[in-house]
Design a protein around this nucleic acid. Structure first.
Length: 297
DNA sequence: ATTACGTCCTGTCGGC
DNA sequence: TGCCGACAGGACGTAA
């Protein structure tokens, strides 16, 4: 049947690794192809679509697919760039049926629930964006001025960029009274970390998430930078293997299920070697936070 | 400038 | 069995 969910991925909570996985999965479906038809099935997501959204995309070719923090960026041959944020539940479904002929009555099949935007391409699969909670959003912006786009302009460095280092983080932490986890989730400090990977990184760095950022010592900051990179790298690798598994499994859904060391593990023993503590769940800045009070200080 | 908090949205899950 | 509240959370808007 049409609207097959043959290719469906993205974790329920897209942070940098999940967005990167989506980018890699979407690349073969979109890059180099012309958008022949764009359909909006409602006037807004988190925000209203910009004026003439569908018209500005239609006919343009997707030059490449990039990622910046948690944003997907698709520069187009028209001189504008499609900007996508997945929010909480945003996901792309790739319809593997190449042409309408491949699927009888394809156009009579109902679209999946929450399918808000449909992209048709020349000789490529149909790509559908669905987002149950509509925390995601899309925008179109002049590529030459992309760095002035409000949401992109305020993003901090990429975690893998050399600019994100110990002295940078020390400056970002100085005089800040907010909890260190809260600071790491601030997209203007570093781009791409959310609630899950901030918790995971701090556990690895053995720093308590609620500790005031200004009270984090130099040595601890020195552990946080590589800890962030390690958790993100591992998760990106897990996403990559999900994509490969999907390709190998010929049609089975490729859900991105990465396992976490502390997130969602309240009451379980701390996985750090030699630590006898248990993972503690608390609420910090309104968000569920997991850490080991024994080895994170 | 910095911080805290409410808000949006709906599917899922546990308890009764 | 069904209902109902709690929960999940990124980023914005507002207020202090």
């Amino acid at each position: 049947m049409a609207w097959r969910r043959d290719f469906r991925y993205a974790s329920p909570m897209p942070e940098l690794p999940e967005v990167e996985t989506v980018r890699r999965g979407l690349e073969p479906a979109l890059v180099g192809r012309r958008l022949t038809k764009v359909t909006l099935r409602r006037p807004d997501l988190r925000f209203p679509f910009p004026p003439h959204f569908a018209r500005r995309l239609t006919g343009a070719r997707v030059a490449e697919l990039r990622r910046r923090g948690k944003f997907l960026l698709a520069p187009l041959s028209s001189g504008e760039t499609l900007i996508v944020h997945l929010g909480m539940t945003g996901r792309f479904l790739i319809d593997l049926a190449q042409a309408a002929d491949d699927v009888p009555f394809r156009d009579q099949c109902p679209p999946p629930k929450h399918a808000h935007v449909v992209f048709e391409t020349d000789n490529g699969p149909r790509v559908t964006f669905s987002d149950a909670r509509r925390f995601g959003f899309m925008d179109v912006f002049e590529t030459a001025n992309l760095s002035h786009h409000l949401q992109l302009a305020n993003l901090g460095p990429e975690p893998f960029d050399g600019a994100f280092n110990q002295s940078y983080l020390a400056a970002a932490f100085s005089a800040r009274r907010r909890g260190v986890k809260d600071i790491l989730m601030d997209q203007s400090v570093v781009a791409g970390l959310g609630n899950i990977y901030a918790s995971e990184a701090l556990h690895r760095a053995r720093v308590a998430p609620g500790k005031e950022a200004r009270r984090i010592g130099r040595k601890a900051i020195g552990r946080i930078v590589p800890a962030i990179r390690a958790v993100l790298e591992e998760a990106i690798d897990a996403g990559g293997s999900t994509l490969r598994d999907f390709a190998a499994a010929n049609g089975s859904p490729g859900y991105f299920q990465h396992s976490f060391r502390v997130y969602g593990r309240g009451g379980e023993p701390c996985p750090n070697p030699g630590c006898v503590g248990r993972i503690h769940r608390s609420i910090q800045a309104g968000r569920a936070t997991y850490h080991c009070p024994t080895c994170q200080e």
